[in-house]
Every structure is written in structure tokens, then in C-alpha cells.
Design a protein around this nucleic acid. Sequence first.
DNA 1: CCAGGTCAAGGGAGT
DNA 2: ACTCCCTTGACCTGG
Length: 302
Amino acid sequence: MSIGYCCISLGVNANRMKKDFISVNRGMIKKTFDSKGLPYVSELTLQNITDCKKILQYNVSKDISVYRMSSDMFPCIGFYKIKDLPKYDLIKSKMIDLGNYIKSNNIRVSFHPSHFNIIASENPDVVSRSIDELDKHAELMDMMELEQSTYYPINIHIGTTKPNTTIAAQRFCDSFSLLSDSCKSRLTVENDDSPNQYSVKMLYDMVYKVIGIPIVFDQHHFLYGPKDQSMEEALTLAISTWKTKALTHMSSSKKLEDIKGLATAHADYIYEKIETFGLDFDVEIEAKCKDLAVLKYRKDFI
DNA sequence: CCAGGTCAAGGGAGT
DNA sequence: ACTCCCTTGACCTGG
């Protein structure tokens, strides 16, 4: 089992001034995009890619080999074609370099595009925008020359239950066929944290059986989703859908740190040992304290 | 220079 | 039909 974290690194910025902060998600609002245009996108993107490598190097130094890359690395990615960016050749060569570093250090990276990507939406415009953005995530993986498999997953939720979970899941499967082959080969789907949304078992029956994409098991979401299986059953079922080593999510409830906190919100650190039931899988820790939570988890539990 | 209001985006619950 | 919230961190502006 390898354990990693998502996007932002706190440790890499210890003792660093604001000015030289290492960040992979420099972005901009639409107004700035309209006034400064693509050259500014390229400028921020190049800085983000440069810093992403620094974070990966830091991860390697801490023996952290799982990392979720930020979807904000290319700001406002829905507004342009990647190949239209100024300095595309430079961007591309830095992405190849990043990919080489990832491969030669056996790092497993993933993407988790935002919750606005809903290919099951009843609104066709939302579907086509989501397809475009998901395909672009796959294009970034391709730019890094990472193999097209769920070893490098692009993970999303179904994102809607309209008009009911069955029909929405069908639309998810229908829209899946509209994605690029590159994206299809990497797409995974994750269980939800609400009793009205999708459990692992529902995803297995409604999505996996139809289009065969793996299920990302989120241990924290499991506690708050539909209660139709034990954790061991749900984890085992989710793991069974993977051809590559499975990826899972782990977090602790904010309630454990703050009695007023939301149960479904993420805590700063992890307070429970990850249940494996004898299975092998990778883990992305979703905790506010990011890499520091990974280091603390290993100290506390391993 | 900094605090805090705001941000492209959808969905869902409540009214 | 409408409002507000979810959830998140960084942007950006006004003081």
C-alpha cells in the first residue's frame, strides 16, 4: 500500500516566504482572463508546472509516491484549446519532463476534476462542457506521456441524481461513450457521502456492469452514503473492479476535531487506521494538513 | 499592504 | 421559481 495526498503541499513551504511559495494552483478569475488573455494563462501554467516538479521532488524525499495533481495547473482550462496557448512547445516540453520524473521515480499521479464536471447532467450544455474538460485532463496526462490506464486515473462522481439514480447513472454511461479514448481508458467513478446518492454497490450495478470502469472507494464517504453493505463488502467490491492496483480515498471527520464541525467535512489529520481486510490498494489521504497528515499517519499507524 | 468579499462553472434542499 | 448552501483556496480590490 502506498499513501499520498492531494495537490497542495505544506511541508515543502515550511520556512518559505509568501513571495516564493511553491504552488501548483495559481489561477485567475474570468475578468482577468478576459483582460490578460492566453499569454497570462501560459505564464501561470509554466510556474505551476515548475512548482509541481518541486513538490514531486519533495514527495520523493519523504518517500511519498502517490499524489493527486491539481486541476488548476492550467487555469480556466475550459476557455481555450491547450494547443493554442502561447509557448505551447515550452509547456509541452516541461510536461514531458514532469512525466519522465513521475515514471522514473515510480510516482502514481491522478486527477480529480471539479464537481462541475457532470456528464450525467440533464442539461446537454453541461454535458458537453464536462466532456471537453475531462478530455483535456486526459490530454494533460498524454502530454506527460503517461500510459493510458487507470494506473493514472481521472476520477469523478456521477454528480446528479435527477430524475432518479437509475436514469442519471444510465446517462452517465451514455455520455461516457462521447469521451476521447484517452479519457475513457483512465476514467473512474467514486462513491458519494450522502444517503441519497451513490454507494459502491449502486455504482457497481449501474456503472461498472455497463461500462466497466473501476470504482474509487472513499472510506469516509462510505460512512455517510447509502447503507447497503458492510465496509468490508464495499471495499472488496470496489477493489474487484480494478485491473491496475486500486486507488482509494481516506479522510477523518471534522467532528473529531471540532464538535461543531460538519461530519462529512475533512479533518486536519487522520485518526483511524485504514482498514485493508487483507487487500492491497493505494490511498490518497484527503486531509486539511495534506502531506503533513501523511507523515503523521505513518508515524501513528505504521 | 492586507483583510475579506468574491469567484465560471451545478445540484440539491428548503421555502 | 427562488434563495442559500455545499466546499475550497486563491484572486483581487478597496481602504
